[in-house]
C-alpha cells in the first residue's frame, strides 16, 4: 500500500474534496481498496450499489472519528476506528439486506468486507483523526466520488464488453465473456492504470 501526494494537514475545503477525486484517487493513485473494485465491477448495478455503501461508511466513519478525535488517545485509536467503522458497515449490511436483496446477492461477502477496506481505515487514520468534522466530511465525499468514478468506469467497460448490453439494449451480440470473469477485471484495471501513467508521464515531460 503506497501512499503519496498527501495534502497538508490543514487543507481547505475544496482542496480536501478534490483531492479524493484526482491526486489522491484511492484506487488509481493510492492503490488502496482494490479488492472490492475487481470483484464488484462486473456490472454497473453492482458498481453503483457498492459505491453508495462505501460512501455511507466512509463519510459516516470520517465524521464520527473526527468528532471523537479529541477524546481518543493515540494508543487506542485503532480499536476505536474498527468499532466505529464496523458499526457503519453493519448498518449498511442490514439495510441492503432489507431493501435490495438483489444487491445483497450480487455484492455478497464484500459488504461486510468494507470494514477492512483500506480506503475507509486509511482516510480515517490519515485525515479524519487529524482534521475538523467539516473537512473530514468533505474528504469523505471527495474520496467516495473518486472511488465511484473508477468503479463506474470499470463496471461500464466490463459490462459493455463482457455482457454486451447496456440499460437493457443489446450492443454487442457476441460479448467477450472473459471480461466479466476474473482475468477481465485484472486486464481492465491494468489498461486503465497504463493510460493514467502514460498521461502523467506526458504531463511531467512538458
Amino acid at each position: 500500500m503506497s501512499k503519496s501526494n498527501k495534502p497538508g494537514i490543514s487543507a481547505p475545503g475544496t482542496a480536501a474534496f478534490l483531492y479524493g477525486v484526482l491526486k489522491g484517487n484511492p484506487v488509481l493513485v493510492l492503490m488502496i481498496g482494490l479488492c472490492p473494485v475487481l470483484a464488484v465491477s462486473t456490472s454497473i448495478f453492482n458498481a453503483v450499489g457498492m459505491s453508495i455503501a462505501v460512501a455511507f461508511v466512509l463519510i459516516g466513519s470520517n465524521v464520527i472519528i473526527s468528532l471523537v478525535r479529541k477524546r481518543t488517545p493515540g494508543e487506542i485509536r485503532i480499536p476505536v476506528f474498527i468499532i466505529i467503522i464496523s458499526t457503519f458497515v453493519t448498518i449498511v449490511d442490514y439495510v441492503i439486506r432489507a431493501y435490495s436483496p438483489e444487491l445483497y446477492r450480487q455484492l455478497g461477502v464484500f459488504i461486510p468486507l468494507i470494514v477492512v477496506n483500506c480506503i475507509v481505515i486509511g482516510r480515517g487514520e490519515a485525515f479524519a483523526y487529524k482534521n475538523t468534522v467539516k473537512l473530514s466530511f468533505l474528504d469523505g465525499i471527495g474520496t467516495s466520488i473518486g472511488f465511484f468514478i473508477v468503479l463506474f468506469v470499470i463496471g461500464l467497460l466490463r459490462q459493455l464488453f463482457g455482457k454486451g448490453e447496456l440499460l437493457g439494449k443489446v450492443i454487442f451480440s457476441k460479448p467477450a465473456l472473459i471480461m466479466i470473469l476474473p482475468p477481465g477485471g485484472f486486464i481492465t484495471i491494468g489498461v486503465l492504470m497504463g493510460i493514467l501513467t502514460y498521461y502523467n508521464l506526458k504531463k511531467s515531460k512538458v
Binding site: M31, I187, G190, V191, M193, G194, T197, L201
Partner: peptide, 11 residues
C-alpha cells in the same frame, strides 16, 4: 514506460 510497475503486473 507507461506500463512499468503496476499495469504490467495486472496483465
Amino acid at each position: 514506460k507507461a506500463l512499468q510497475g503496476y499495469p504490467v503486473a495486472f496483465f
